[in-house]
Simulated assay, not measured.
Amino acid sequence: MHKTLPFLLALTLGAASAQSAQDILNRVDSAQKNVKDLSFRLSGSANMDSGKQTIDLTVKAVPAQSLARIQFAAPDALADNVVVADRKEVRQYLFLTNQITVMPLDKATTQSGLGTFDFTKLSNPATLLAGYDVKLLGTSGRAGQRTFQLEAQAKGGSSKDRTRVWITEAGWRPTRVQLLSSGKTLADLTVSNYKTNSGLSAASLRQLPKSAQIVRP
């Protein structure tokens, strides 16, 4: 479990009269331009090495720096653990051992057990899906409150991994993220308590216990 989710947690996407996935991405990118910081709760379930687990965590992010902080409430084995990720590395604080494991971002993403999707970019739609082919699967709801379901696959078509993101046009933000691999659901997570520009600082997001031992595997 300790090689788990290098989450970084959430995305913002949407469209008022969108006709394609790219229209949606463009509108989300436009809505994101004035977001200096954001926070949200991500909850649901994930199929880990040890079986199906309840996931409950809080994400705080500074999109301009691709910086995110994730604090776990569940599963129990990860409660009070903290992950801090940026463009270069992931720092995972393990509460029980008072250790901080540091590894490059690409290695942490590979070891997450959730495919190739880079959770550290969830708060930055301008770069999140740059390496993916994205299509619009469907639209539901009435005008002004519609939800758009997008599906992304790594470019080239060889990967069996898929990422599905549900976007509401009421605020142009994500409401749900689902990860799939070879037809199986790896994670199904709901986005809630979404807040922007609440005064979060990069320094506060990076803060971890000074007494913790640094480990570089």
Rank of each mutant, 00 (worst) to 15 (best):
L11P: 01
L13W: 07
L13F: 04
G14M: 12
G14V: 12
A15P: 03
A15G: 14
S17E: 15
S17W: 02
A18F: 03
A18V: 10
Q19G: 13
S20G: 03
A21R: 05
D23V: 13
S30D: 04
Q32T: 09
Q32L: 04
V35I: 14
K36E: 00
K36G: 06
L38I: 06
S39I: 01
S39G: 00
F40D: 05
F40A: 15
R41V: 07
R41G: 00
S43K: 13
S43L: 12
S45W: 07
A46L: 14
N47F: 08
D49L: 15
S50P: 01
S50W: 11
K52M: 11
Q53R: 14
I55E: 06
D56A: 13
L57V: 12
T58V: 13
T58C: 03
V59Q: 13
V59R: 06
K60S: 11
K60C: 06
A61W: 01
V62W: 07
Q65T: 04
A68L: 02
R69Y: 03
I70P: 00
A73C: 03
A74L: 14
P75L: 13
D76M: 05
D76C: 00
D76A: 13
D76T: 05
D76E: 09
A79T: 11
D80G: 02
D80E: 12
D80P: 06
A85T: 10
D86T: 14
D86S: 09
K88E: 15
R91G: 00
F95H: 13
F95K: 15
F95Q: 15
N98W: 02
I100M: 02
T101K: 13
T109C: 00
T110S: 05
T110M: 14
T110V: 03
Q111V: 11
Q111R: 12
S112H: 07
S112P: 01
L114A: 07
G115L: 10
G115Y: 03
T116P: 06
T120N: 13
K121L: 15
A126M: 08
A126P: 09
A126W: 03
L128T: 05
Y132H: 02
